[in-house]
Structure formats: structure tokens, C-alpha cells
Design a binder for these strands. Structure first.
Lengths: 216, 216
DNA sequence: CATGCCTTGTGAATACTGTAACATAACTAT
DNA sequence: ATAGTTATGTTACAGTATTCACAAGGCATG
């Protein structure tokens, strides 16, 4: 275990390992070797062993890895066992979709509250979570410490809300806004989901493929 | 211009350049140097120049880059000018959110139709796009060629729908499903939006930060 | 119109990431 | 038990990606 400074590439592969291991466990697989895992995930066995070795020695020679145990190790590494608290800001279509369909609990998160400005939403519940008025957000944060805020407000409010969250001590922002949040001299972590970036990347590769097919 | 084989890292930075350039243009900025752009985007000027040089020579010595022109070059590279057609499969909360809030047109995409199985949705319109029954999907694809399918169905249907899309000649799938699509011997491109991977990455970094703060 | 200032594009150097190879040790079957 | 097989963790290597450094060339000002 040499948890000095692990590269972002390794970190971003961990959730994928987790998903795969969950899947294997679900199908009753009890053990797996780096070779087999590599085949199933289109990775080299070397890379898999190297990735895991950043965090410890989870396998056994001549046997491989215990699926359940490895899954748990990765879950722990990712902080899933810490029971982080979350709030959602912006109960529009997307916020609503996240509340109803994204299982925060399955990833160890506790979604404690949601906030919006629409009077017809305030006071109601979605998927068992109460919706408060956005005006109460700052007070809520001061009262009750929150680890992560899911930011799903319209673009024009994003910068302002993000700053407010940061100033009130939020640990991290999961940003669904199209905007590049700029909180540079703050300690708040930011992780972006930029739909458009993803689509445009796909668009690029599609274009490349079409060009290769002679369509010039 | 040496458009031989451009690394994925470069490609994934392009949409971000585009967003930044749009923003600059919106604020009336007409020209920008790699130095200034680098400062604003937290990238080295070298990297920016190197990235662009993969596709051509868009700048001028002693001047920098013309914001508008560069923006257009990147838009073209990304295939935004090609007017790709798209359909959406699965008009649940998320699909609905995408139809209403994600501006496909702004990225050069034409969302032509949506598909679902729910009788109360079939026959209606969302954001000007008609919803058809999923049974008609295969026929629709054969009739009318479609470039990209947005896959937003429940997880349990994902594999089956993806295979069907692929078999009916879809060019690419934009996958919002938690599932790792496995279409290996097909030509269909896949781009994933894995919400959980993103959240767990954030969770990792939050955990790391907390550990550094002595909280062990 | 010429001089000095910028800023590009690129080739070379550095740093990082991923792959290969291997020594080591646990498991399995006889 | 023992021999053989298997698969790990790690060290050494190869391949990418990023940064540095500079020659070349346009821009702007006097």
C-alpha cells in the first residue's frame, strides 16, 4: 500500500471495476483472476493488477481475487461506506429525475433535502425527500453540515448558487450545469457532468467514422 | 494538419474549448492568445497550441486566435455542422428532461422522434417532438436513417434495446443507462454517461480531502 | 517603412501511463 | 507430502502525453 498520490486515471477506473464486480457477484461468481477480468472489461491484466496494487494487496497467488471482498475494498476506497450526506438544488426536470431514479442510497449517500424556488414545489415531497424554498438553503447549510450538493439549477443561476454553497462550507458540488464553475480559491471540490461535452465527443467520433467510410 | 490519429485526450478537450470560446464570443471578446486562454482554462499555453495544431493552423503569430473563427473550426471538427439526426428512446424522467432542457439543436442535432411503451405518452408531444410506441422503432429505423440514439430506458431493457438499435444500423448510441453496453462486433459507437461513476469519483476525492485534514 | 514586440507552430526534452516480464507464493491434484 | 500449475505484486521497459524552448513571422507604433 503506497497511497501517496494516485493518478486520476486510476481513480476514474475504480467505479467501473465496482460496477463489474457488482455484476459478477450478482451472477454468483465468487472469484476472478486479473486475466479473466481483463478479458471481460477489455483491459490488460497488468493494468488491473497495477491499479489494485495502488491501494493494497487484495489478491492471492494461484487463486485470484475474491469478488465480494474486492468489491468491498473498492467501495471503501471510494468512500461509499462513509454515509455522506447530500442535498439537491434545483428540482426541475433533471433534478426530479435524479431524485426519483438515481439511487443515492445504493452508493452510500443520504439525500437529505431538496431546494427550489417554485411555490408549487416547496412543501411537497419527491421520492420521500422534502423540498424547501431556496431562501432557506444558506440557513440549512449552517445548521446541518452537508457533504455534497447536487447542482441542477438553470444555467443562469449556477454561478451564484455555487458560490453560495461554497461559502457556506459545502464539501463538494456535483455539477449538472453546463457552466464551468469557478471557485478557485475555495476548498470545495467540483465534479462536472457536461452532457454537451459527451455528445460532442460522440459526434466527433461519428464524423471520423463517416469520413473513413469514404463519404469524405 | 496531420489528422492521422488524434488521441482521445485531445478530443475530450475540444468541447471544453468550444464552450469557452462561445462564452468569450458572448462577452464580445474578438481575439485571444493561447497564454490568456490557458490562464482562463487552467491549461498550459503549450497544450492549447499543440491541441489545435492537430487539426490545422488557426492562429496568427503576434496576434493570437480569432475567437469566432476558432470557434467555428472546432465546431466543424466536432461535426456540429453536419446536422446529425437523433432519436430518443425512453421518455421517463430523464428522457423527458433531455427533451425539454437539453438543446439538441444548439449542438447541430435534430431530434426527430421519441419512443416509449407507456400508452399515456404515445401519441403526445414533448418540446415539439412526437412520441411513438417502441414497437414502431425498428420499422422507423429501417425507413428513415438515424445517426444517433439517446438511450434512456430503464436498466433492464438497456441491453436488448441497444442490440436492436445496433442491428438496425444506428450509427451511435448515447447511453444514459448504468449498464456497460456490449456490442463488440458491431460498428455502432457508444458514448456513456455514467452518473454513478462521476459521483463515486467525487466521493473518492472528498474522502481523500477529509483524510488529509487529519480526520483520518 | 522600419523596428521591436508578440505569439504562433513545432521539434526536442521531460514526465507520466500502461504493458511486459518475472520472481514468488498459494492452490490443487496425485 | 510433493510437483506442477496458476496468478499475484513488482520491477523494468515502452509508449503517450505534456511541457519547454525557440525559430519564424505577423502586428503595431513611431
Amino acid at each position: 500500500m503506497k497511497r501517496s498520490k494516485i493518478s486520476a486515471n486510476v481513480i476514474r477506473r475504480l467505479p467501473r471495476y465496482l460496477r463489474k464486480l457488482d455484476d459478477l457477484a450478482y451472477h454468483g461468481v465468487e472469484r476472478i483472476s486479473s486475466g479473466e477480468l481483463g478479458k471481460q472489461m477489455s483491459l490488460t491484466p497488468s493494468q488491473i493488477r497495477q491499479d489494485f496494487s495502488c491501494f493494497g494487496e487484495f489478491g492471492q497467488q494461484g487463486y485470484g481475487y475474491n469478488v465480494e471482498a474486492l468489491r468491498d475494498e473498492i467501495a471503501t476506497i471510494l468512500g461509499m461506506k462513509r454515509g455522506y450526506s447530500a442535498i439537491l438544488v434545483g428540482v426541475g426536470n433533471l433534478g426530479h429525475a435524479l431524485m426519483e431514479n438515481f439511487g443515492f442510497a445504493a452508493y452510500g449517500f443520504h439525500l437529505k433535502a431538496a431546494f427550489d424556488v417554485r411555490p408549487d414545489l416547496v412543501g411537497t415531497e419527491v421520492a420521500g425527500v422534502s423540498i424547501y424554498h431556496a431562501d432557506q438553503l444558506a440557513a440549512y447549510l449552517r445548521e446541518d453540515s452537508v457533504d455534497i450538493a447536487v447542482l441542477a439549477v438553470p444555467r443562469r443561476f449556477a454561478a451564484q448558487v455555487a458560490r453560495m454553497l461554497s461559502e457556506n462550507g459545502i464539501g463538494a458540488i456535483w455539477n449538472f450545469t453546463n457552466l464551468e464553475l469557478d471557485l478557485d480559491n475555495s476548498k470545495t471540490l467540483v465534479e462536472n457532468i457536461h452532457f454537451s461535452d459527451s455528445l460532442l465527443t460522440l459526434s466527433y467520433y461519428l464524423t471520423e467514422a463517416r469520413e473513413e467510410d469514404g463519404e469524405a
